[in-house]
Amino acid sequence: MTDLLTLIAVPMAAGGLQFPEMSPALVSIDFGFIGLGTFHLRWYALAYIAGIMLAWQYANALIRRPDMFGGKAPATKEDLDDIMFWIILGIILGGRIGYVLFYMVPYQQDVIAANPMSVLKIWDGGMSFHGGLIGVTLAMLMIARRRQLDLLPLGDIAGVVAPIGIMFGRLANFINAELFGRKTDSAFGMVFPEGYVPGSTPPAYDWAARQWVYSGQEFARHPSQLYEAALEGLLPLVVLSILIWKFDALKKHGLVAGLFLLMYGAGRSIVENFRLPDSFASDLPFGLTMGIILSTPMWIGGAWLVWNALRPKPLHKPD
């Protein structure tokens, strides 16, 4: 096993801020005595749970104030409970299916051919935000049709609460030392552990030794997970909350949803210049990345929603 002093010295020698190296799990419980191995309560799972629960509470707070929507809330609490169930399924299924379609099918056909069941191994990592967004959209379309609800104000609620989950998810990426950025000499550079531990998730964490492993070849990199937490999560949450609570933005149906799509698309496109692209999709032309390409429909859809919400509505003449 690599000496602990060497593990600590690597980030100091590489330059840059040191990764905080907290455990990827809040607690680990050994059930080996009954043959179940070790259970890790991971921060990543807790981030998903916390993001969903806080978003749910925020959405409930909004529908309790029908005046914010112009006099009538777009859903009841029972509607919202049903919607959240299907949204969770949309996040999980859409996120995984999106990753398979956007990344594995075009770039990792050899992995699928060697083990077709790998497409189901969600526990090994591989979730696409854009796939999750499609899954959530389809879930909301289904519920709105089934319960005869107005889709646009529902989308506005989703637009203002979604950044909570995004922010927590990106912070969990940081704790997992995954999706880090490109090499940098800036003062914000951070040395992430990159030593590979076979069969481990995160791949650079030794669960047996309970420590991060460094290869000795690390460089300071942009902590792009924190950039994304700020630009894709915190900033949209603050801006959209100000717009709905101070400027009655929810009364213009579709406006908040459109602004969320535009802000996320902008934030993601900016951070893609600092985030390390996937090795199997790093040779796209014109400096594009898959994240930028997949954000393009968000720009288009967001712009249409904002235009539709702000354009003058025709006056209805009495018969």
Rank of each mutant, 00 (worst) to 15 (best):
N115Y: 13
P193S: 07
F168E: 05
S200M: 08
I87Y: 07
I97F: 15
I175E: 09
G189C: 08
F129Y: 11
I88K: 04
I92N: 00
S128M: 05
Q109G: 14
L151Y: 11
W123L: 11
R146P: 02
F192N: 02
S200A: 14
H130A: 11
D156I: 04
V197E: 15
M142V: 13
S200H: 06
T137Y: 11
L133W: 10
R145Y: 12
Q109A: 15
I92K: 01
V111K: 14
W207F: 15
L93T: 05
A114K: 01
N173Q: 05
I166M: 15
E178I: 11
Q109K: 14
G131S: 08
I157H: 03
G131H: 03
A113G: 08
G155W: 04
W86T: 10
L120W: 12
P106G: 11
V100L: 10
P153T: 10
T184D: 13
P106V: 05
A158K: 03
G195Q: 01
S118P: 04
E194M: 14
A114W: 09
G131R: 00
A162K: 00
S200I: 10
A144L: 00
G159K: 00
R170H: 10
T201A: 12
G95D: 09
L101Q: 08
L141M: 10
Y196T: 13
D156Y: 07
R182W: 04
G125C: 03
M140V: 14
A158N: 05
G126H: 04
V136I: 15
D150S: 03
G181T: 11
L120P: 03
F129C: 02
A187C: 14
F180W: 13
M167S: 08
L138Y: 04
A114G: 11
Q148K: 09
G195I: 09
R170E: 08
V119Y: 01
L138V: 15
Y103L: 08
I143A: 00
V105P: 00
S186A: 10
G126W: 06
W86P: 00
F102A: 11
D124F: 11
G135W: 05
